[in-house]
């Protein structure tokens, strides 16, 4: 039984609890037995040992998962589980359909949505925000604080994915593992066809087109439908296209983890500061020095253009980073 316990992932803790073996004992013995030739070599050995330990732990977890998947469940239990699932699904669908039937009709005159707020947006939105596209005027002027929250949520999501999946090459514990994940036979992209010259020549033509299209959508956010979120997604798609054609080594020339951090943080701070200014002037009744411009021109709508660009940067970086992390475990 004790063997079984020590095989578990928490085995070290259990051993320490039972005082079978000191956690650090093995490492200390290993360190004593070893002639300290040089610091580097020792460090390398430690790392390798840790790497092997990690691998063993992973194997144990994988075998347990396999056993869990292969365990025999009685037929009745399976049937009950299936029926329960179906029941819950049908109940959810019924509940949602019932809710839909009680909703007010679309565009009716006595809807709760038809109050003074949208009337004000429609009637005075153009004068107050200077944006032809009323939706952009709403999300980046009247409700800009909400959009800042959205961008921050996006940033936080990307950050959490990075925390969970990224192996920092500079950290002590994972350095070997991180290096090995990026090197040849362990890399996720190792088996993929690379250097397809047809695809590369096409990507050379099409990536700038995708970038241009995305930038156009971002810059025209206050005139036509679109804006920071959709335009950023298109530019991110262009980056993904480039990566697919040329590989991750090529894109590391201009886009690394550091670039991501700096770009996104700068964009978020710019957004926050510029909006702080407009909130301050708006709340205190001070005349803003930013002109609204002629509606319909590209330089109009006050701060909306700047905010759109910031959101575009954030979305671009996040789209690309999520793709890279899920494909490769690194940026």
């Amino acid at each position: 039984m004790s063997d079984r316990k020590s095989d578990l992932p928490g085995g070290r803790f259990v051993r320490w609890l039972n005082q079978d073996q000191d956690v650090l004992e093995r490492q200390m013995i290993a360190a004593q037995n070893r002639e300290p030739d040089s610091d580097e070599e020792m460090e390398e050995a430690w790392r390798r040992e840790r790497f092997l330990e990690d691998q063993k732990e992973e194997e144990v977890v994988a075998s347990r998962l396999e056993a869990l998947n292969e365990r025999k469940v009685p037929v009745i239990g399976r049937v009950v589980y299936m029926l329960g699932c179906m029941l819950i699904c049908i109940a959810m669908i019924m509940l949602l359909l019932y809710t839909v039937t009680t909703l007010p009709g679309f565009g009716g005159e006595i809807d709760p949505a038809q109050n003074e707020v949208p009337r004000r947006y429609i009637e005075q939105g153009l004068q107050e925000t200077g944006a032809l596209n009323i939706v952009t005027g709403m999300i980046l002027d009247y409700r800009a604080f909400d959009t800042l929250g959205e961008s921050t949520v996006l940033f936080a999501a990307a950050m959490v994915v990075l925390f969970l999946l990224r192996l920092d090459p500079e950290s002590n514990r994972y350095s070997t593992l991180a290096a090995s994940i990026r090197e040849e036979p362990y890399a996720d992209t190792f088996y993929e066809p690379k250097n397809d010259s047809i695809l590369q020549h096409t990507a050379k033509i099409l990536t700038p087109v995708a970038f241009l299209l995305g930038i156009y959508v971002v810059l025209n956010g206050h005139l036509t439908p679109g804006g920071g979120f959709s335009g950023g997604a298109i530019v991110g798609a262009g980056l993904v296209l480039h990566v697919t054609a040329f590989g991750f080594e090529d894109i590391r020339r201009f886009f690394t983890y550091r670039t991501y951090q700096r770009t996104v943080v700068t964009a978020l701070l710019t957004y926050a500061f510029s909006k702080t200014y407009s909130f301050y002037t708006g709340a205190n009744g001070i005349e803003s020095i930013i002109p609204l411009g002629m509606p319909g021109a590209i330089l109009s709508g006050g701060l909306i253009l700047l905010l759109n660009i910031c959101v575009g940067f954030i979305v671009t970086c996040t789209v690309y980073v999520l793709y890279a992390v899920f494909r490769k475990g690194d940026v």
Binding site: D188, T189, F190, Y191, E192, P193, L199, L206, V209, A210, L213, I234, A237, G238, V240, L241, T244, A245
Partner: peptide
């Protein structure tokens, strides 16, 4: 743009 991207990424992933 997006449909082209979907095809090439899926092809690469499945070949891998």
């Amino acid at each position: 743009v997006l449909s082209f991207l979907a095809v090439i990424v899926l092809c690469k992933v499945y070949t891998g």
